[in-house]
Amino acid sequence: MPWQGNSNSLSRRSAIPLTSLDISTLAPYTQLARAAYCPPSRIKNWGCGQACNAIPGFQPTIMGGDGGAVQYYFVGYWPSQNSVVVAHQGTDPFNAFAVLTDANLFLRSPSQALFPGLPSDISVHGGFLDQHEITATVIMAEVKRLLATKLSNKVILVGHSMGGALAHLDALSIRLQMPLVQLKVVTYGLPRVGNPAYAQYFDLMVPDAVRINNQRDVIPIIPGRSLGFQHTHGEIHLTTATQAVACSGTDNAVDAQCTIPTVPNIFVGNVLDHLGPYLGIPIGTIYCY
């Protein structure tokens, strides 16, 4: 299936329409990303409303964050998929501290302690690195514990907005520390995370990754490529409320159905599209019910 992150399958065409089956299989990951906006008190017993109800049987094991200085997050076990799940809250536009964190966009090298063996030419958004460093150690420890106790070898990472960037960084850190683990990454409204060297390396190390953009959302086009940033592969662009295409390459600026031609600059975008709905499912703090 083209949206599963196999860039080779997309090499002959710029954009491939997704089938209704492709679209329906994305819904559980969207609900997990939606659940990440709910406070830990509601995640603890998996009582976060519609998002939690959509994933029956999910077993959250650790959760944290305050929704501001530290984005909400949770780790748990998804029995039907025999997978460990890591989910991060994204940027809450109503929380000034989180917005300012996003503004810290200077590129810098990640820590070798969290990313052992990472090539020295790789640089990442400084604000995302700061947030990742706060939770990386505790999340990594819980992932390792769950993989061992549940006899699993699969980790699914999801997130919206900055939460997607944190999911990317968690995935790369896990890959470098546990190279045999199967990783799947699904993000929504993902901003650019790092430089071209980062994008190329991530694509090599985490091939099963998709980033879903909703219509005229402006967040996926920032930080700008002129600032030294580049997207990873796996773009899925929701062209309407019910239709989507899988776009080849990284920053696909060629096909009119992909994000960059649709939103060439922030002045023609719609920030409300950042909240979705993502094929019928909205994501954000106000949708935790």
Rank of each mutant, 00 (worst) to 15 (best):
R211K: 05
L272R: 04
D217K: 03
A36M: 12
A15P: 11
D102E: 12
Q71C: 01
A87N: 07
V271W: 02
C247T: 12
P191Q: 13
F94Q: 10
V206M: 06
A244W: 14
I221P: 07
L146F: 02
Q200A: 04
S14Y: 13
I139G: 05
I134G: 09
A113I: 12
L32Y: 10
V84T: 07
Y289V: 04
L190T: 15
L272V: 06
L169E: 09
D92A: 04
G164F: 00
V271G: 00
G269F: 00
R225Q: 08
L190A: 15
V181K: 12
L190M: 15
K144S: 13
A136C: 06
R211D: 01
I221Y: 05
F128V: 14
L146D: 01
V124Q: 11
H125M: 14
G90F: 02
A103D: 13
P110S: 10
P191W: 10
C247G: 12
A51T: 10
P2W: 13
G163K: 09
Q257W: 04
L10Y: 15
T91G: 02
Y72F: 15
A87K: 08
G163T: 10
K154N: 08
F74T: 05
N8P: 13
T149I: 09
T101D: 14
T259F: 03
N195D: 09
N104H: 13
P282L: 03
E133C: 10
L147D: 03
W46N: 02
R211V: 11
F97E: 14
S111F: 08
Y201E: 05
I281N: 07
I122K: 05
A199N: 03
V155R: 01
A197I: 11
G127Q: 06
A51H: 02
P28V: 10
I222V: 06
D170P: 05
H132S: 15
M63Y: 10
Q81L: 13
P196G: 09
E235P: 10
A241Q: 15
I174K: 07
I156Y: 04
S226L: 00
T262H: 08
L204D: 13
D203P: 07
C52R: 02
N45W: 06
M63I: 05
K144L: 09
I122V: 05
V143E: 04
I62W: 08
Y73H: 10
G117H: 13
Q71M: 08
S7C: 14
Y278Q: 07
N8K: 15
S123D: 15
E133D: 15
T61I: 09
S120Q: 15
Q71P: 12
Q50V: 14
G284L: 04
N213F: 02
V85G: 06
V99R: 11
L107H: 01
L10R: 15
C48D: 00
I55S: 11
P116D: 09
V210A: 06
L18H: 09
T149F: 07
S9D: 15
R216V: 01
C48Q: 03
P28G: 12
G163Q: 05
D217P: 02
A103E: 13
V158S: 01
S80K: 14
P282I: 08
V254I: 11
